[in-house]
Structures are given as C-alpha cells and as structure tokens.
C-alpha cells in the first residue's frame, strides 16, 4: 500500500455512500425469511465489511450502529421486537470484524474477516434468543446450525465485498485524491 491518507472530503463522501448502502441493505433484509422470527441472515454485514476495508475499524462500528438505528427508524421497526436482534447481531459482527482485521489482516483477507463477522453475528443473535425468549437449552441446540449458516453467509458476503472492493475501488488507495499513480 503506497503512502498517504485519503483526504477528508473523500472520507466523508465514502462514509455517506457506505452508510446509505448499509441502510438499504438493512431495510431490505427483513424480507428474507428465516426459521425464527426476527433473526436475520446478516447480509447487511457486506456494508460493514466494506467500511472496515476502506475507512477503518471505528467507522465500521459507527456505521453498524447507525445502520441498525436509522434503518429501523426507516423501516418502522425501531425498538420493536427484532430491534435487539439486529442491534446485537450487527454490533457483535462489527466489533469482531474490526478486532480481527486489526490483529490479523495481512494474512486474513476479506472472506476470513467476513466469516468471523458472520459467526459473531449468529452467535450474538442466539444469545439474545436464549436470554430473552427461549432459555439457554434451545438456543444452544441451534448453535451448530448457526455456525454452519455463518460459514455459508460469511463466504457469500465476503465474496461480494471482495468484488465490490475491487470494482468500486473503495480500498484506502481509492479514497486518496487522484494522483499520477492512481488514475
């Protein structure tokens, strides 16, 4: 990665763009059916992923929280039953992804981070399910399914993010002001 930080302006623009994308994903994700009410697949983590790999960890967590709160305001589910699932899931994913990205990112690529995020997302949602609704045992019994599902969704979101990062040129180098090196 060649030196130079992205300019302030392009960061703000990037942030706004990614937040918008995240909001759209969040609102639309409700329409994908899942076996349990209010438990979501976590596909809007694509947005969080893109943020981590372009803008950085703190922004990622911020966008995750904003995505859920503003997104649910838009969708009309704010503070509704699914809200806690979405918030806990999205936040857990963002924190886990940010942490692993910070710690292990040269060897760990987009898909790896995405898998970790998906796992964290599902585990967190199962925890909410167990704590607020069904009690520990049924939630524990769903854990294997949650992990295997995370493997699948993590691969998918990771690959989508990978493609997006390449195509949309959202990597840190893409957010630098245009120079001779960077058409």
């Amino acid at each position: 990665m060649t030196g130079g930080r992205p300019s302030r302006g392009s960061r703000v623009a990037g942030f706004g763009l990614l937040l918008a994308a995240a909001l759209v994903l969040h609102v639309l994700e409700r329409f994908i059916p899942t076996p349990f009410p209010f438990v979501r697949l976590g596909l809007s983590n694509v947005a969080t992923l893109l943020v981590i790999f372009s803008l950085g960890a703190c922004d990622a967590i911020l966008i995750a929280v904003l995505r859920v709160t503003v997104g649910s305001l838009i969708a009309g589910t704010f503070l509704g039953p699914g809200f806690s699932f979405a918030l806990v899931g999205g936040l857990a994913a963002a924190v886990a992804m940010a942490a692993f990205h910070r710690a292990a990112s040269p060897p760990l690529g987009v898909v790896g981070v995405s898998l970790i995020g998906a796992a964290a997302h599902n585990i967190a949602q199962l925890a909410v399910l167990g704590a607020l609704y069904t009690g520990a045992a049924p939630a524990m019994r769903l854990l294997p399914a949650g992990l295997l599902l995370a493997a699948a969704t993590g691969l998918v979101t990771g690959y989508i993010a990978h493609l997006a990062l390449g195509r949309l040129r959202l990597g840190p180098e893409a957010l630098r002001p245009a120079t001779a090196h960077n058409p």
Partner: peptide
C-alpha cells in the same frame, strides 16, 4: 487489498467454523 479471494488464513477460519459446527451437531 486485491489479490486472491480466499487467502490461507481465510481458509483456516472457514475450516474451523465448519468443523466446530459439525462437531457440535453430535
């Protein structure tokens, strides 16, 4: 950040995740 879609470390995470999921099934 271009390059291979699935790095070695990524694969490791995938194996661990799937392995755990399957193991817990039993």
């Amino acid at each position: 950040m271009r390059g291979a879609a699935l790095t070695g470390a990524d694969r490791l995470v995938l194996y661990v995740l799937v392995g755990l999921g399957v193991a817990l099934l039993f």
